[in-house]
Simulated assay, not measured.
Amino acid sequence: MDRGKRPSKSIVGGNNKIYMDLKDIIREYTLPFLPAKSLFRFTGVCRDWKMQISTPFFAHNQSNSFHAVSGLFYQIAGEPPSFISLDPKAYGVPDPSLTFLPVPVDIRASCNGLLCCQARTGDKAYYMCNPATKMWKKLPKPDADHGTDPALVVIFEPSLLNFVADYKLVCAFPSTDFDDGYEFEIYSSAEGCWRISREICLGDRKLLPSPGVHVNGIVYWQMKHGVLVAFDLARERSQLIYGMKGALCVMQGKLCSVSMHGWTVTVNVLSNVYSNTMEMHSKARTWVQKRLINLDPSALGAGSCKQPSVVFADSDTVVIHDGNTIFSYDMKTKETSALGSAVGTRLIAYVNNLVHV
């Protein structure tokens, strides 16, 4: 009889060990790939999970593991910011109005969890913050006058080897010495100061009040009539690129433009920035069509008298502004969802991670 009971005890003990190992695996290798809102909710699972999620090392690991765009901050002029989540159950911030900052602010740019804002009054200082953790830092005053609507781009590439979140801000601002020219000022968090580049970009067009993007060491801003300003950070050289249509975005590590005509979304990829210098009748093109997406008008409501426009896109999602409503199109599932209302706003994409400022 005793011999018959021993195997069952061994099996129970083995099952307990397997269960504990699986729990540890989930804690160590799954949690870092979840968004900040879900992680804050999971701190109530048990004491071990709460301690794990609360450590600076976990925040560093999660900011390197989670890169999905989680939603968009938007703001009507003169009002506090708001947040539209791509999935309200998974993504969110505790204070979308950013009242944890010491002054009222306007949102300017974002990258991989870091949000750049500017004070509305006083010295109009820049603030870097993480809305998920409410951490923030006031930046030194720039040397140049960036104007009333700064063309800022945040550059932050998380690295497992760098525990400190080193980032840069690049601002294109109107030159005071050359009419129709733009200069560039760069802030480095590692150096803690601003520096004006010697480069000056000459052109007869104005920058549009839309977010710029950073791709492979080059920063791009939109100008009127389909022209881009490109600024190479390594060489600190600029050039104008022509023929761009729609909204700037990054897909699979390449600069793309996404436009919408009727209910069709066209994705063009930047192919050759020197096509305008090629010989006549050359087949080289600056922009090459990469993808066409045919949307279902009924899924978008089709109730607006205006042409819908793309306000953001990446490899996973296309966000469309149709009248007063924001819609998202999932590239994988091909499903369209209504996210909420936004009237006359600027939208800034945000990643819901735990990066330390």
Rank of each mutant, 00 (worst) to 15 (best):
A247E: 15
K206V: 15
V215I: 11
R291P: 03
G301A: 12
Y242R: 07
G253Q: 02
S275P: 01
M223W: 07
G217Y: 10
D314T: 01
E279P: 04
P297M: 10
A313Y: 06
W263M: 14
T317K: 09
S298L: 12
S298Q: 12
I241Q: 00
M244H: 07
H261Y: 07
V229M: 14
V258Q: 00
S271G: 04
C256A: 11
K254S: 02
K283S: 13
L240D: 03
D314F: 06
L228W: 03
M260N: 07
H214W: 03
L228G: 02
Q289W: 02
A247H: 08
P209D: 10
L207W: 03
R291V: 05
N272Q: 03
V215L: 10
P297S: 13
N294T: 12
C305I: 11
E236N: 07
G253F: 04
D316K: 11
R237I: 08
S282P: 02
G301Y: 09
S275A: 15
S210F: 10
D314I: 00
P211F: 07
N276G: 00
Q222H: 08
P211L: 10
V288W: 04
F312N: 07
P297N: 11
N294W: 09
L233E: 09
M244T: 01
L255Y: 01
N294C: 14
L240K: 04
S315Q: 10
Y274P: 01
T264V: 14
L270I: 01
V258N: 02
S257M: 06
Y220I: 06
L248Y: 00
Y220V: 07
L248M: 09
R285C: 06
H281F: 09
K224E: 15
A247Q: 13
Q239D: 14
N276C: 13
I293G: 00
K206T: 15
T317F: 15
V319N: 13
K245V: 07
L295V: 06
L295D: 09
V318Y: 05
V250D: 13
Y220M: 02
K306H: 13
S315V: 05
D296L: 10
S271Q: 04
W221Y: 12
L208G: 05
G226H: 00
A234W: 12
F312L: 09
S315N: 11
M223Q: 15
A299E: 15
L207Q: 09
M223N: 06
M280K: 12
N276S: 10
V250L: 04
M251H: 02
S259R: 00
G301H: 05
V265T: 04
A313R: 04
N276L: 09
V319L: 14
V273D: 07
L240E: 15
M280A: 14
M244G: 06
L270G: 00
H281Q: 07
L300T: 04
V311E: 11
C305L: 14
T286M: 05
C256H: 07
H214D: 12
V288I: 15
W263T: 11
Q252E: 13
R205D: 15
S315K: 11
W287R: 01
H281G: 05
V250H: 00
F312R: 00
Q239H: 11
Q289D: 10
C249D: 11
V219L: 12
G246N: 03
T286G: 00
K283T: 12
